[in-house]
Every structure is written in structure tokens, then in C-alpha cells.
């Protein structure tokens, strides 16, 4: 079913909206959540909560891109769940690897203007992503939005893992420089 029709179902308060969403995006959201939580039970709950959030958001919302809309909700819920599960400690897994890698992007203290709100930081990252070539951008997003493992990224783009690692390393450094240039501190 087309996204527009699914959204119409939400607006009409038809409960089939959720079934249709699950049919089209269920696996997409489950796999995203699974990468973060590594628990079928937890990710199932996050996906169900995603449908609930979608139900509460539409109307009045009418997302221009349902896939990204649902992906973002699932990601945020899953990360919140992960934090709750790992309160006070940081374990292993893909999430921890990603977090450690993201340290490379943190601007050095001294370039500070003022602390930015999350949205402003995201807008700055958007500008950075826009400046990248298509493949570099997609690889960066696969790793740090979808939390794909390096192996998965390599498979998806048909390149070696070492190439992905070195590309991501360069991109993280470039993001740090970009944030510093824009006077951003985290």
C-alpha cells in the first residue's frame, strides 16, 4: 500500500492503519531496533510503541516520508530503552562501538560559542552530510543512524570492511572539523 494511503488510514482513525504499517515497515523497524537492543523481546516492544506513537501523531501530523518518520521513532525509542537497560554502565555491542566512534567527532573545547540545542546540532550535521558525496553520506548514515555494523555496511555497498573503516574515520574527523568551524560545542 502506498504511504499516502496508509497515512489516510491514520487520519480516518482506521485501526487497519497499524496493520498496514506493520506489513510494510514492520521488518524495517524491527531490524533497526534489533541492531540497537539485540533483544527480540525489547525490540518488539519498541516497534509496538512506534505504532502507538504513529497513531498518536497522525493526525495532526502528516509525515512527508513515512519510512524516515517511523525509523526515527523506532531508533529513538530503542536508544532510550538501551540507555535504560544499561543505566550506569556501558556494555559492549554495536551501540557501544558507535558511541566510541562518535567521540572522534566531538569538537575540542575552546571553539565554543554556546551549547546548541539538539535540533541545531542536527541542522549542522545536515549541512555536513549535504557537503558529502552520495556514497560517503549514505555510508555515514547507515553506520550512525541505522547503526549497521561495519561488515553490514561493507556488504551493502560492495566494498571491503577496511575501506569502510578508513572512510568512516576520515568522515568523523571531517565532521569534527566542520563542527569546530561552525563554533559548536557539545
Amino acid at each position: 500500500m502506498e504511504d499516502g494511503r496508509i497515512i489516510d488510514l491514520y487520519w480516518a482513525r482506521e485501526e487497519t492503519a497499524i496493520a498496514e504499517t506493520d506489513k510494510k515497515y514492520g521488518n524495517y523497524c524491527r531490524s533497526l531496533s534489533m541492531r540497537i537492543l539485540n533483544s527480540r523481546e525489547d525490540s518488539e516492544e519498541c516497534v509496538n510503541d512506534t505504532w502507538l506513537r504513529a497513531w498518536d501523531s497522525m493526525p495532526p501530523g502528516r509525515p512527508s516520508c513515512l519510512c524516515a518518520f517511523l525509523g526515527k521513532i523506532t531508533r529513538n525509542l530503542s536508544i532510550s530503552r538501551w540507555r535504560k537497560n544499561h543505566a550506569g554502565k556501558r556494555g559492549s555491542g554495536e551501540m557501544q562501538l558507535v558511541l566510541t566512534e562518535l567521540e572522534d567527532c566531538i569538537p575540542s573545547v575552546g571553539s565554543v560559542e554556546e551549547e546548541l540545542e539538539g535540533k541545531e546540532l542536527a541542522a549542522s550535521i545536515d549541512r555536513f552530510l549535504k557537503s558529502l558525496g552520495e556514497e560517503s553520506r549514505n555510508i555515514f548514515v547507515r553506520r550512525y543512524f541505522y547503526l549497521d555494523s561495519v561488515r553490514e555496511v561493507a556488504d551493502r555497498f560492495g566494498v571491503s570492511e577496511s575501506k569502510v573503516k578508513s572512510l568512516l574515520f576520515r568522515l568523523r574527523n571531517r565532521l569534527r572539523e566542520h563542527l569546530e568551524k561552525e563554533g559548536i560545542e557539545l
Binding site: K72, N76, I79, C105, L121, I125, L186
Partner: peptide, 8 residues
């Protein structure tokens, strides 16, 4: 940073 990536 992780959260900001979720708002791109």
C-alpha cells in the same frame, strides 16, 4: 551526537 544523528 547520537541523538542529533537521530534528527537528521
Amino acid at each position: 551526537l547520537l541523538d542529533a544523528m537521530g534528527q537528521i
